[in-house]
Nucleic acid binder design. Sequence first.
DNA 1: TAGAGTCTGGACATCGTTGTCAGGCAGGGA
DNA 2: TCCCTGCCTGACAACGATGTCCAGACTCTA
Lengths: 348, 348
Amino acid sequence: MTLTEGRPPTSRYGSRPTMKDVASRAGVGLKTVSRVVNGEPGVTSETRRRVQDAIDALGFRRNDSARVLRKGRTATVGLILEDLADPFYGPLSRAVEEVARAHDTLLINGSSAHDPYREQELALALCARRVDGLLVVPAGPDHRYLEPEMHAGIATVFVDRPARGIEADTVVSDNHGGARSGVAHLIAHGHRRIGYIGDLPRIHTAAERLRGYRTAMEEAGLPVRPDWVSLGSTAPERVRRAAEEMLSGPAPVTALLTGNNRVTVTVVRVLAERDPHRPVALVGFDDFELADLLRPAVTVVAQDAAGLGRVAARRLFDRLGQAGLPPSLVELPTRLMVRGSGELPPAD
Amino acid sequence: MTLTEGRPPTSRYGSRPTMKDVASRAGVGLKTVSRVVNGEPGVTSETRRRVQDAIDALGFRRNDSARVLRKGRTATVGLILEDLADPFYGPLSRAVEEVARAHDTLLINGSSAHDPYREQELALALCARRVDGLLVVPAGPDHRYLEPEMHAGIATVFVDRPARGIEADTVVSDNHGGARSGVAHLIAHGHRRIGYIGDLPRIHTAAERLRGYRTAMEEAGLPVRPDWVSLGSTAPERVRRAAEEMLSGPAPVTALLTGNNRVTVTVVRVLAERDPHRPVALVGFDDFELADLLRPAVTVVAQDAAGLGRVAARRLFDRLGQAGLPPSLVELPTRLMVRGSGELPPAD
DNA sequence: TAGAGTCTGGACATCGTTGTCAGGCAGGGA
DNA sequence: TCCCTGCCTGACAACGATGTCCAGACTCTA
């Protein structure tokens, strides 16, 4: 039989059967259908079967909008990232999805495309759809716009970076410590002129990593020339220019710390084009696929992206289960993965 | 002022103000608030201002569940991928997002984790939330479960692979032609014993690519030994074993076609561990980041992932705008990107 | 056979918003 | 002065599901 058989003649294309339709077809009351659909007790198996038949024949599916309206909870949480295509967020989002699934909750992924306005637009759209909770990788400089939503009961956790302007749960990596250990590693291999190329300074992680870089240099008693630090967009052209300037100036650097995986990849390209007899050491923040297969293999400060997602999601559900928890801050450790590019000796 | 000032005393934590609350605070009717919120005409600027003040004071945000219930449309479409962390899907999902945005529509991303059951669960959950449309990268062997939904008016487009069991809009790459051109490239460089390692045979793309491989071999009058073809999961262990067997059997292959980027990456690892004096040529299906920086650089058959997403999303919105279009099939061309690994001479 | 207790099913209000429609009011023409 | 037009405004029903509560049917016991 085809699935269109048995539809009531009133059903137009684009209109769906409701519980009322199911009830009248099965010859029972509305509430009985509701009981069957929700697996509630108090329906004889004979009645249950009749209702189920009607549901199948009509192709009925419960309208969750109506359900949400009545019940108040949506069993849905939102995750707002900067860029779905950035490999750093893959494991993060996957980890969140697993936790959400364990709580029978649907995860909605969205991307702000690095644009504060789009982040806000997206977050508020999800709030208007009454998600129970929100996980946000902040792109914008100010998150006070979420205050009314949080007060109204939408659990919110910030991941990878803290929010600005409000107190909220936050899960981040130890960016300062990670950068510091990466630079210390370069120093231990004899480098004294080390550059840092990072993301926009308004982004918290970029600032923290810069701070870690400075700390390591200071601890070794090394000076930091202003032209050894370059913060800005991670667009390949900008990063390329920055790298080339640092490598050719009056006091060229012999080693580089790159502020995230986008920057690292571009810098790897720049270094590959240079004279292989004058190698430049490199430590990248964020691990990336195939880093071990490049020659030289790229030494990185790896973040636990899946851990960030998992811890943040757990915190979100804790908060959903128990309102009124005080805001918490969790900092996850990073790990230096030594592979080769950071062990090159200084060229001079 | 803090944002909690002015809340009516009845407002509990976790309950939100409604239009009714706004109306009574502003001293106007319910419908007038609705007009202001939706920017409808027919409200004096004085009234509008009073209402807006009440909205701000109460932190009101329209409940879209109720709105959807009343209006029938959600201005939301869903995209179901296999794995959010697979870099192939990044540009695809980004392209869909751009198109959705141009239509003032929210995009919900979800992942099936390669599991047919999860795909169905997710698709139906989105249908229950009454998304207007659905873009699906099929993971399952049977999509008849979507038939009632499509009949009920949920526009559905399949991407990257066709659906099984139903007629529907589909946008795919020219998998057969792409694989054929990749293998022809290897043959042109003197290879006669060429292997193919692909995804599970039930996956349409894997089968098509196998067909392309066979076509190219046949056209060159070359035999295909059964142990030169290995289909199965893309788990690294399986792929590694398959590659090692093909490279060490009685008639070892001198070149490989890999069926997608996951397989390619694993094979690159295997090849990197082997004797560099006996190189194995490689052509991978799907481009991937840094393919050009490996040594040898990896020659690939590149798909237009962004194109897949863009074309599919456009088709979805065409269908939303005009119901009853006949199902269409679009096949996008692939591009052979010659980089080095496919040009190695046969080892013997 | 009557009464008590249990189980099943249905009528109705409700969630927050929007579409319909009618009432009120001001201004202009006769 | 009266009526008509046009503009604002608000009362009310409806969207589809769920929770409350009660009625009727049934079983079991005295």
